[in-house]
Amino acid sequence: MEGEPFKLSHSKIESFLRCQRQYWFKYVSGERWPAQRDTPAGIAGTGVHRAMQKLCVTGNPADGEAELDAYLRMPKHAAAGPGTEWHRLAFEWYAAGVEAHRSIEAEQSWAEQGNSVKFADISLYGGADRVDRLGPDRWQVIDWKTGRFDLGPAEDRQLDILHVVVRGLKKLPAEATVRAVAWNLRTGEQRVRELTRDDAVNQVAYLARLAKRMLAEREFAPSPGPLCGFCDWQDRCDAAAAVEVEGLDWVDEGLELAEAWEFEAGE
């Protein structure tokens, strides 16, 4: 609406960059969003994120374990409930999270930090799973991952946004440096970006230019491909309907990859 700031989030940006037709459905069309599809991987990942939040708050692994157990025992989460392979994996990932937590030497830590910061005519939304003050001018921002896939540049873009949001919310001094980490509890891999105030300034300038392009777009061209089969909007998209799906050997992997784009992006 005219006069209101343009809302930006990592999820919104990735949708625009990945498939502008999907972006149109989600953020421009005004159509009702389809019901979200829960998958075992997503249920397990969400449970681990909730457990890591409680672990960060109290420092007691038992609190996170109790949260994960209760979450996966909910009837609607039976696909990753007790006795399933996903249940076992979720507790395995949480055990890795406990070790990650113990390895961090911080003066103070916060769980699930973020909301929005405003600049120019933009409201930038983002939330970090964990923020650590490592020293007077040394900070760390963590986004926990549980997927099989390294999303590479998309993860970098997410970390850059989290850096801007946390830098604004915590009012970090100009000299403060931030270690932004996409920390995968399934694989143990860490994707790290060392960021400064100049990086935040450059990111804000980029986001302003990107927002201008997003607002000016009128065609919203589709990007049809195998992942169309896992898009929640496929039933309303003529381009998705034209994609021929051959074979089923890649379905499970494709569904998890599609979910990773959405789940790891967040809103």
Rank of each mutant, 00 (worst) to 15 (best):
G168N: 15
E85I: 10
T39S: 12
R179D: 04
D252Q: 03
A90T: 14
Y23K: 04
R157T: 01
K26G: 00
L169P: 12
A180R: 01
K12W: 12
D252C: 02
E189C: 04
A176E: 05
P5D: 13
A120P: 07
M1P: 05
M214P: 04
L151W: 02
L207S: 03
C237K: 11
I142D: 10
D38P: 00
G64M: 11
P61N: 15
H49E: 03
S116I: 09
Q108H: 08
I122E: 03
R236N: 11
V165E: 14
Q113K: 11
E14A: 11
A95H: 14
A80C: 01
R133V: 12
P61Q: 14
Y23D: 07
L151Q: 10
E99A: 14
E253Q: 06
A95E: 13
V181R: 04
A240W: 02
D199N: 06
G97H: 14
K212I: 03
V57M: 07
I142S: 04
D132S: 12
G3A: 02
F220T: 02
K76F: 04
W144M: 00
G225M: 01
V165Q: 10
E217L: 09
W93G: 10
E189H: 07
L172E: 15
A70G: 08
G59Y: 12
D69H: 07
D121P: 07
F16S: 13
R138Y: 09
S103K: 12
D63M: 03
W250T: 00
I142Q: 08
C56T: 15
L169W: 12
H49Q: 06
A174M: 04
D137V: 15
E217P: 01
L257Y: 04
F149E: 11
P75Q: 15
L210K: 10
G247H: 01
L257E: 00
V57C: 13
E246T: 06
S15P: 02
V48Q: 01
A260E: 06
A44M: 05
E194P: 05
A221L: 05
V164H: 11
D129P: 00
L151V: 10
F149N: 14
G30L: 10
R21G: 07
A154Y: 14
N202I: 10
A260K: 01
E67K: 11
E217M: 04
Q190N: 01
G135Y: 11
L185H: 03
E85Y: 06
K26S: 03
W233V: 10
V251W: 09
Q190G: 05
A208W: 07
M52I: 06
Q158C: 02
R218E: 08
G126Q: 00
V28P: 01
Y125V: 07
S9A: 13
D150I: 07
R157K: 00
C56M: 11
A62E: 10
A41K: 07
G254W: 07
F149V: 04
V251N: 03
K26T: 05
K54A: 09
S11T: 14
G127W: 05
W250V: 08
T39L: 06
E219L: 00
R218V: 12
D238F: 00
Q20S: 10
D143C: 00
A35S: 05
K170C: 10
V201T: 09
D121H: 10
K170F: 15
H101M: 08
R218H: 09
V117C: 14
Y27D: 06
A180G: 00
S123G: 05
